[in-house]
Amino acid sequence: MEIKILGTGCSNCKKLEANAREAAKEFNGDVKITKVEDIKDIMKYGVMRTPAIVINEKVKMVGKVSGVDEIKKYINDEK
């Protein structure tokens, strides 16, 4: 499973990435996290507001910082 954190590097983007990494620990290495910072790549997902989370190429959340438990739910929904 792949999680992409979309964001240009703002503090909210960094916090979302940290939360995603914390959530991923529960899944024993079955989750790969990638940071997407290039605005052109972000726009390919139709995202106009960051941060955002993409799991298995599906946009799950846009424009806020999801907590660890919320991210775990997104991951479980994609299993």
Rank of each mutant, 00 (worst) to 15 (best):
I75Y: 05
K35P: 03
K64H: 13
N76Q: 13
N56V: 04
A20S: 15
I42T: 08
C13Q: 11
I55C: 07
K58V: 04
K25V: 14
I39N: 07
P51A: 10
K44G: 04
V54P: 04
I3E: 08
K32Q: 14
I33Y: 09
A23Y: 13
M43W: 11
K4D: 02
V47A: 00
D30M: 15
C10A: 12
K60S: 04
K64S: 11
R49N: 06
N76T: 11
T50Q: 00
L16M: 14
G67W: 08
M61H: 01
E2L: 15
K35Q: 15
G9A: 12
K25L: 12
N19T: 14
K72L: 05
K64L: 07
K40G: 08
G67P: 05
N76D: 08
V68H: 06
S66Q: 06
G46N: 02
T8E: 10
V31W: 08
K4W: 04
Y45V: 01
M61I: 00
K58P: 04
A52I: 01
L16I: 11
D41S: 09
V62D: 01
I5Q: 00
E22Q: 11
N12T: 13
V47C: 00
K58A: 05
N56P: 08
I5M: 01
K15I: 09
K73R: 15
A52H: 00
V36F: 03
I3P: 07
I53M: 02
D41M: 06
I33M: 10
K58E: 12
M1K: 13
I3L: 11
Y74T: 00
V54F: 10
G63C: 09
P51V: 07
I42M: 05
G46D: 01
D30R: 15
V65E: 07
K79C: 08
Y45R: 00
A52E: 00
V36M: 05
K15Y: 07
E57G: 03
K4S: 04
A18E: 11
I33H: 06
E2R: 12
E26G: 10
D38W: 15
S66C: 11
A18Y: 06
D41V: 03
K4V: 02
M48N: 04
Y74F: 15
K25D: 11
V62L: 02
N56H: 10
K44R: 10
V54K: 06
K44Y: 07
V65D: 07
N19M: 12
I71L: 02
